[in-house]
Design a protein around this nucleic acid. Structure first.
Lengths: 338, 338
DNA sequence: TCGATTCGTCGAACCGATTCGCTGAAGATA
DNA sequence: TATCTTCAGCGAATCGGTTCGACGAATCGA
């Protein structure tokens, strides 16, 4: 069931079949019909590998995700979903590559074996080996997130620094004077995870500007961790009245500890964060947060990537996203504690 | 940077380079070293498409997921993660294909273009076009889930019928006489989604066996829906004291409505379900549930698939999983209401 | 009526690997 | 010394498409 077989049965040459299929040269209507009839009858599809070999492109993009073992956050899931969706709309397939940990063979294969026409990279560090590897010898790529030298690459990112600063200002406007930043997990931040550092910077800046008292803690990315993290925090700093956070996965746990401690939200305690819109809305109570349009960001990343694939000489483009804060049910006027 | 270039620089023929790399024929140590040196210097990797073309296999498997637009449940996420993980361990890449809705081109490409050596299919219906398509002319495949004729294919599945029956028996043992089954979303069930129908069957059977009063409802797969679904349920059936469910995503919403109605869990109301272990543990309160080992099931599916790829004549294998119910914090003795 | 265009098609080269059959040299055996 | 193995390596064919140059027939203009 290859092109030669089709050609033979239709009584034409292989090249004619190819032209009939791709439309790259004119073929008479009559011949086209005959070829199509044979194709339909035999259920023929061109072999993707052969086509890729000759054309030099695979019509596939790679999506590098955090190691599969760790649960993806709702935001990350939104990125993946929208990338897959946008790629499908552009008739591109998506090859998944978990990176980090033991899976570096997978990354190498994807990047270097010309298996994909381009790559979308998630969960980028300020200094990122994978970015270096791709820049040095790899296909075009686009980051969801950016490194310390963001001019060298194309990316779509969330402006965590500005957004966390806005959260702090919002809380300060409500009268909160003592607040904490709940960051993502300590290893990630220690490894130079961009959003973690930028959120810290934004927090520090806003706290200084408003003359507030600020505390920063890291917290693993799940509800259990959020619960114990906040217990510790309340024990160490009983004067706190508000939290800003980029750790959406921890929020349910934060709610639990507050309830446990008899603190109402937003009566006794306020929370503002940065989270996927879908997640913020579905929490109970709904989280006052900068609504990250995860569903849109993946699509944007795919757009940028398609451009770079078409013309790798295109100047890099950057999309720094700072959605407004949606006031929901978790922030209110400060009421002094203790 | 192809094999010819390497051969030239190492002063050998292309076939010798190939044999040195694959080890399929002996090559002298000295020659191997020379070739390796050139490869390291140039950073050469064999072109995946050329290799796939000649070898007739792609070292890639397809993973067909529900349309990306809808949020994956925690269990589905567990399947995806463990499939990706197991595939990476076997040096296989994973091509993602959202199926259903508008994405059928993607499914066709994956199945028919010989882009993958095998396919893992999720979210299978009792009558499933995609299974028919694969059986008729497609690569080997394994289902996570099964059709009405489960002998025709290899699969790994959860024994929802038995598990929901066990939940009902467990609740009956605790004295509950009037209970409801919260199923997954209505469209899915109407479309013949296997777990939905099997859960109903198990529920009906157990309810009949124990002479209970049972109600069945469908509910979309998210917390909001769970919340409103349970409101309706309590309004229509104020006598209910327990719920069995396969809809893990709805559980947080169920909790909310119960709290809203002033019903304590498990004091006033009990809940038992089937859910990914990770999810059941992280809920608050932790859900009494049959702990689906999602992380293991994906790995098993990959194992089965690798066997089928190696020898498509292998008899089909089936893995029906019925984990024990872990008693956590959501079931207790019945206390009659109203 | 002759040369130039256009149209539809063909044949061959090519993409980059793998693999089969063969050959020449070195070592073993008689 | 002649013959038989074994070992390393080479050259050519092959996988299934795409693409370039060429070619014959029909159409057109002069």
């Amino acid at each position: 069931m290859n092109i030669g077989e089709i050609a033979k049965r239709a009584g034409v040459s292989r090249s004619t079949v190819s032209y009939a299929l791709t439309g790259k040269r004119p073929v008479s209507e009559e011949t086209k019909r005959r070829i199509q009839a044979v194709i339909d009858e035999l259920g023929y599809r061109p072999n993707a590998a052969a086509r890729a070999l000759k054309e030099g492109r695979t019509r596939t993009i790679g999506l590098v995700i955090p190691p599969a073992s760790q649960r993806l956050t709702d935001m990350q899931l939104g990125f993946v979903a929208s990338v897959v969706d946008a790629a499908a709309r552009a008739d591109l397939d998506v090859l998944l590559s978990p990176s980090g940990g033991e899976h570096d063979r997978s990354f190498e294969r994807v990047v270097t074996g010309r298996r994909v026409d381009g790559v979308i990279l998630m969960e980028i560090r300020l200094e990122d080996d994978r970015v270096a590897r791709l820049l040095e010898s790899g296909p075009p790529f686009v980051g969801i997130g950016r490194t310390r030298q963001p001019e060298d690459m194309s990316w779509v990112d969330i402006d965590y620094e500005t957004l966390i600063a806005k959260c702090v200002h919002h809380l300060a406007d409500l009268g909160h004077r003592r607040l904490a930043l709940v960051n993502r997990n300590a290893e990630l931040v220690a490894a130079g995870y961009g959003p973690g550092h930028r959120a810290q910077a934004g927090f520090d800046r806003a706290v200084a500007e408003r003359g507030l008292h600020g505390v920063r803690v890291c917290c693993a990315d799940d509800a259990q961790a959020g619960q114990s993290c906040l217990r510790q925090l309340l024990a160490d700093h009983p004067e706190l009245t508000a939290i800003a956070t980029i750790n959406e996965a921890a929020v349910p746990g934060i709610y639990r500890t507050l309830a446990e401690a008899g603190l109402t939200v937003p009566g006794d305690f306020s929370i503002a964060g940065v989270a996927a819109q879908h997640w913020a809305e579905n929490l109970h109570p709904p989280l006052t947060a900068a609504d990250v349009p995860a569903d849109e960001m993946g699509a944007r990343a795919v757009e940028l990537l398609i451009q770079r694939i078409a013309d790798p000489a295109t100047p890099h483009r950057h999309l720094l996203i700072a959605p407004p804060i949606s006031l929901r049910a978790t922030t209110g006027p400060a009421r002094p504690r203790a």
